[in-house]
Simulated scan of single mutants.
Amino acid sequence: MGRGKKRRKVKQKLKRKSGKLVRFCLSNSSKKYSGFSNKFCYQTNIHNLIYKDAIFDNVKFQNSNITECNLKNTKLTGVDFYNSNLKKSKFENAKLKDVIFFNCNLKNTDFKNTKFENVFFISTNFDYCKNLNKEEIIIIKEYPKIDNQSLINAILELSKFTKLYKSNVLHVKKNKINNWNISILYSKYSHDLIRALKALKNRKDKRNFITLYSYKKFIESYLKI
């Protein structure tokens, strides 16, 4: 390993220890990767990588490029793709559960024989992707309104906690909630959502709240659903 590469690795390690996000960039590798879990990937830039048979659990890709990647037979549970480019990537025979595609580029993305369970396509143009069975997905185009002030207040209280705020699942800004995600949660849990979010505020362990799926797991555990 050269000196320059060693220095970069040391800098990345120091950034991770200080809580800063480290961008991952890699392309044209012949190695087969196994996936990962409990990770917030910001501005990840990967191209032509092999994730065949990989497992992803509770992962969020934000403002990322995931192009021409082989995701055949992968299992994705609780994965959020936000403002990301998945052009020409292949999800053939993949199993997607509790996955969100928000404002994504899906041009020539292949969903041949992909199995969907509770998968949302939000503000995403899927006209140019391949083999997508629209009957198996949930499509949201219109911006939802949240008028419940008690709910809004409970969410804004959580923005004080960095571990909950930094992944922007419930919040867009410190003083603005994420209406898209909140509407999904509220339609499922109704007023019990407020009770669960207040319990989350008092919870000591606030790690790994990275995706909408991670919040759903906590809410259902708390409500004993």
Rank of each mutant, 00 (worst) to 15 (best):
Met1Leu: 10
Met1Cys: 09
Gly2Thr: 11
Gly2Arg: 07
Arg3Trp: 08
Gly4Cys: 14
Gly4Asp: 15
Arg8Ile: 15
Arg8Lys: 15
Lys9Pro: 03
Val10His: 11
Lys11His: 10
Gln12Ile: 04
Lys13Cys: 13
Lys13Gly: 07
Leu14Arg: 12
Leu14Lys: 15
Arg16Cys: 08
Ser18Phe: 14
Lys20Ile: 13
Val22Asn: 01
Arg23Asn: 13
Arg23Glu: 14
Phe24Pro: 00
Leu26Glu: 13
Ser29His: 05
Ser29Thr: 15
Ser30Trp: 00
Lys31Cys: 10
Gly35Val: 03
Phe36Asp: 11
Phe36Met: 14
Ser37Phe: 01
Asn38Val: 09
Asn38Met: 07
Lys39Cys: 12
Tyr42Ser: 07
Tyr42Phe: 11
Thr44Cys: 08
Asn45Ile: 03
Ile50Ala: 01
Asn58Ala: 12
Asn63Pro: 05
Ser64Pro: 09
Thr67His: 10
Glu68Lys: 12
Asn70Cys: 12
Leu71Gly: 05
Leu76Val: 06
Val79His: 06
Val79Asn: 10
Tyr82Lys: 09
Asn83Met: 06
Asn85Thr: 10
Asn85Phe: 11
Lys87Gln: 15
Ser89Cys: 10
Lys90Tyr: 02
Lys95Leu: 14
Lys97Pro: 02
Asp98Trp: 12
Phe102Lys: 08
Asn103Lys: 13
Lys107Thr: 15
Lys107Ala: 09
Lys107Met: 08
Thr109Phe: 01
Thr109Asp: 08
Lys112Trp: 01
Lys112His: 12
Lys115Ala: 08
Lys115Ile: 13
Phe116Ile: 02
Phe116Arg: 00
Phe116Glu: 04
Glu117Ser: 14
Asn118Gln: 08
Asn118Leu: 05
Ser123Met: 14
Cys129Pro: 04
Lys130Gln: 00
Asn131Ile: 06
Leu132Trp: 03
Asn133Ile: 01
Asn133Glu: 00
Glu135Val: 02
Glu136Asp: 14
Glu136Cys: 09
Ile140Tyr: 07
Glu142Val: 11
Glu142Gln: 09
Tyr143Ala: 13
Tyr143Val: 14
Pro144Cys: 11
Lys145Ala: 11
Asp147Ile: 08
Gln149Phe: 03
Ile152Asn: 04
Asn153Pro: 00
Ala154Pro: 08
Ala154Trp: 02
Ala154Gln: 00
Ser159Gly: 11
Lys160Ala: 01
Lys160Cys: 06
Phe161Leu: 02
Leu164Glu: 05
Leu164Gly: 04
Ser167Gln: 07
Asn168Arg: 14
Val169Met: 02
Val169Trp: 05
Asn175Cys: 01
Asn175Ile: 05
Lys176Pro: 08
Lys176Gln: 13
Ile177Gln: 04
Ile177Ala: 06
Asn178Asp: 10
Ser183Arg: 07
Ser183Ile: 05
Ser187Leu: 00
Ser187Tyr: 00
Ser187Lys: 06
Lys188Asp: 03
Lys188Ser: 10
Tyr189Met: 03
Ser190Lys: 15
His191Asp: 15
Asp192Thr: 12
Ile194Leu: 12
Ile194Tyr: 10
Ile194Asp: 15
Leu197Met: 09
Leu197Asn: 03
Lys198Met: 13
Lys198Arg: 15
Ala199Tyr: 02
Ala199Asp: 10
Ala199Phe: 04
Arg203Trp: 00
Arg203Pro: 04
Lys204Glu: 07
Lys204Ser: 10
Lys204Gln: 11
Asp205Pro: 04
Lys206Asp: 01
Arg207Val: 12
Tyr213Ile: 00
Tyr213Trp: 04
Ser214Cys: 03
Lys216Arg: 06
Lys216Asp: 08
Lys217Val: 13
Phe218Ala: 04
Ser221Glu: 14
Tyr222Met: 00
Leu223Cys: 05
Lys224Ile: 04
